[in-house]
Amino acid sequence: MIQVDNLYKKIGEVNALDGLSFTASDGQITGLLGPNGAGKTTCLRTVFGLLQADKGHATIDNIDVAKEPTKAKQQLGLFPDPCGLYERMTPREYTQFYAQLSGMEPKAAAAATQTVLEKLQMLDIADRRCKGFSQGQRMKTALAQAIVHKPTNIVLDEPTRGLDVMSTRVLRDLLLMLKAQGHCVLFSSHVMQEVAALCDHVVVMAKGKVVAQGSPQSLCEQTGKTSLEEAFITLIGTDEGIAA
C-alpha cells in the first residue's frame, strides 16, 4: 500500500506538489492521471525517496520513506522515467543485479531473472548488451528489473511510452496479473485508453493537487460525460497536454 499525505514540494519557483494526498491500495491498479507538468513524476520521485518533500509524507506499507528510506524501499519495485539502463550490460545481467540489490541470493536472483525474461518474451535479447536497443526493448528491460524481486508495491512512471501493440498487451496482462496476485500497482500516465482499460482507481491531478479521484466509471458519472477523456478535460478545465 502506498499512501501520499498532504505533500508539498517546491522546485525552483514552481509549486510542483501543492498538498497532494491519495492512497494506492493492495490488489488494485491505481492510475495517476494528469497533463504534462502536473507533478506526476515529482510525486513518484518523492515516493522513491529521491526527492524530499517540503511538507507532508509518503509511506510505503505504513513506513515513512523520508524517515526509514532503506526499510521503506525494501518492498518497492520501480520503473522510472527515463529507464536508467546500463548500456554495457545485458538485460539478464541488469535484472539480476537489481534482484540481488533488492536482497535476493545470487541463485534465486538468477532463477527469478530467467522467469521474468521468459514472461516478458525477451529471451532473444536477454544476452545482448542494451546499447542500440529499441525503445520497446529498453522498456521491457526496465520492467523486468522492476518486477523481478516480486515487490508488494510497484511504481511505474509512464510505462507505455514507446511500446508497440504487442508489448503494450504484454504489459497490460502483466499488470493485471500483479493485481490478481494482490500487489499494489501505482502508475502514472497521460494516455486515457490505458488508464480506462486498466485502473480500478484513478487519481486525476493538475498543478500538484488532486482534482478528483475514483473509478473511471465514477469519474464519468461525476462529470456527466461518457468517456474518461471528456471527464478528464472537464475536471482539469483545459485540454492542455493530453495524448489521444
Binding site: L50, K73, G84, L85, Y86
Partner: peptide, 14 residues
Amino acid sequence: ERNSLQLLLSHPIS
C-alpha cells in the same frame, strides 16, 4: 547523465 543513478538511488541501499 545516463539517468541510471536515479534508479540506483531509489533502491534500498545507502
